[in-house]
């Protein structure tokens, strides 16, 4: 039985000390034939104990961003410029040994498919022990004890340490992965679509669990997903990503009630409501751009209902100039030419 505490997302933008700050992060995929810019100058800050949602569709760069912060980018992806600051220190370009200590202690990651993270031929307990002992000098016995504590933390009977991953249900495996991510009490946990592959009821369970743990242990979360409706319930703040850039960022309730960027508006209207009147929704016409050759100016302009030739000056800016993020309210930033006079 799992009961969740009801914690409503913070409406006020509380001033928190930032755990991690991304400054103009640029990530490219470099092949012999071309260079694709997957993340184009993203700046984002995540405060201590804050749940920040990163929403976007496939190809927008959100997973690449998560991997970049975690420093697990694989060739041909590379960080071209920008900084990732943890407690004021840039972690990009650190050497392997430092990185090893940085990873998992300061920031850990939960992936979409737990089976990608769990070794199918090792018992769950052994995987915990391996991981703990890779970072700390403890005896196997002590590591197992801590592993048991972690399992109970996520609501799994500690006897399951002896089970193999395939003996656990999908939801349980995902919780094991979350427990592993919390093993060293990191300051930040990056979650990349952790519940997408799970059924709706299990997803609800996991989300309630994450909220509980987060309140209890106080870690920050970067929750990457395409499911905006999920973030509206879970996150304190939400950033919307499109074609490698952040186009809007606001506290969750504000984003839901006063979205400013046309893409956000379109996204919000792509989720049919479960209650209330059923009107015909429009969605967003067209498809995300090819990042190897993005549209000039505002990357969303080919699909934007407000990009018309009616206002020639505005139109010229929309197709020629990239909009910058501007503050339009308390904790609310938008990158849209219509926001500037």
């Amino acid at each position: 039985m799992t009961l969740a505490f009801s914690v409503t997302p913070d409406a006020s933008a509380e001033r928190r000390t930032p755990v991690v700050e991304l400054e103009n992060l640029v990530v490219d995929y470099v092949t012999r034939t071309q260079t694709t810019r997957a993340v184009d100058g993203v700046s984002l800050s995540i405060g201590a104990g804050e749940i920040v949602g990163l929403a976007g569709e496939s190809g927008c760069g959100k997973s690449t961003l998560g991997n970049a912060v975690m420093q697990i980018l694989r060739a041909p992806a590379q960080v071209t410029s920008g900084r990732v600051l943890f407690d004021g220190e840039n972690v990009l370009g650190r050497r392997r040994e430092e990185l090893r200590r940085f990873r998992w202690r300061t920031v850990s990651m939960v992936f979409q498919s737990a089976m990608n993270a769990l070794n199918p031929v090792m018992r769950t307990g052994d995987q915990f022990v391996d991981m703990i002992r890779a970072h700390e000098r403890v005896s196997k016995h002590e590591a197992l004890g801590r592993a048991g504590d972690l399992l109970e933390l996520v609501g799994i009977d500690r006897r399951r340490l002896r089970a193999y991953p395939h003996e656990l249900s999908g939801g349980m495996r995902q919780r094991v992965v979350i427990a592993m991510a919390l093993a060293l009490r990191p300051e930040l946990v990056i979650m990349d679509e952790p519940t997408t592959a799970l059924d709706v009821v299990v997803q609800r369970e996991i989300l309630q669990q994450i909220r509980e743990l987060q309140t209890e242990l106080g870690f920050a979360v970067l929750f990457i997903t395409h499911d905006l409706s999920l973030l509206l319930e879970l996150a304190h703040r939400i950033a919307i990503m499109y074609a490698g850039e952040i186009v809007e960022e606001a506290p969750a309730a504000r984003l839901r009630d006063e979205p400013r960027h046309p893409y956000t508006v379109g996204l919000l209207s792509s989720f049919p409501p479960l209650h209330g009147p059923v009107e015909r929704l429009a969605g967003i016409p067209g498809s995300p751009p090819d990042l190897a050759a993005p549209p000039p100016g505002c990357r969303f302009h080919p699909r934007c209902p407000h990009c018309t030739r009616d206002d020639a000056a505005l139109y010229a800016r929309q197709v020629g100039e990239r909009p910058l993020l501007r503050v339009v309210g308390e904790g609310h930033r938008v990158a849209c030419h219509r926001e500037t006079p």
Binding site: V201, Q208, S229
Partner: peptide, 24 residues
Amino acid sequence: RLLIASVPDGERTLEPIEIRKGTA
């Protein structure tokens, strides 16, 4: 009822729901 309560619906604020273990 459980299914409906589990669907993320941005319109509602997060309410606690009791979910017992089991599978469909």
